[in-house]
Amino acid sequence: MNTITSDTVKEWLEEVKDPEIPVLSLIDLGVITQIEIERDVVKIEMTPTFVGCPAMDFMKAEVIESIEKRGRKAEVEINFRDSWSSDKISEKGKIALKKFGLAPPPDSAKVFADLEILENAKCPRCDGTDTELRNPFGPTLCRSIHYCNSCQEAFEQFKPV
């Protein structure tokens, strides 16, 4: 068997997407916190975006499948050692979110220093900032609902945490 590195595994995992946002890979989402290779076993640590994320088991199963179909054994552990924050989403991931119609999360430290940023999310369609926060909770735990006064449409933002 060829030797593999954690970069090889990262490439494999590009195919595993967030089931609720199918344009975003788990790598870009930032939930894969560690990859280690021991002989033919790939050891992976993952962490949930939100503690109550119902997609966690599903994502874990897909990660295992992606590794096993390449003839390696997979061990996946879910923990909070390196806990997720929206700042873990890659630049590539943020661009994909915007294209998907979801406003990418702004820098989380800035948001909680100044809640105005939460009130004026940038509309992913017209880039306008004349927007209103309608609900800090949305269709999934990681999204909030906003309204853009410029294009007069509702939109969602990936919540900064």
């Binding site: 503690v51 609900n135 909770f137």
Partner: peptide, 20 residues
Amino acid sequence: LEEDIAFSSMAQDKIGHSFA
């Protein structure tokens, strides 16, 4: 509707926290 969603989401968070 917004409050329906808010309380449902908070429910999901709380159950998730208790699960952890």
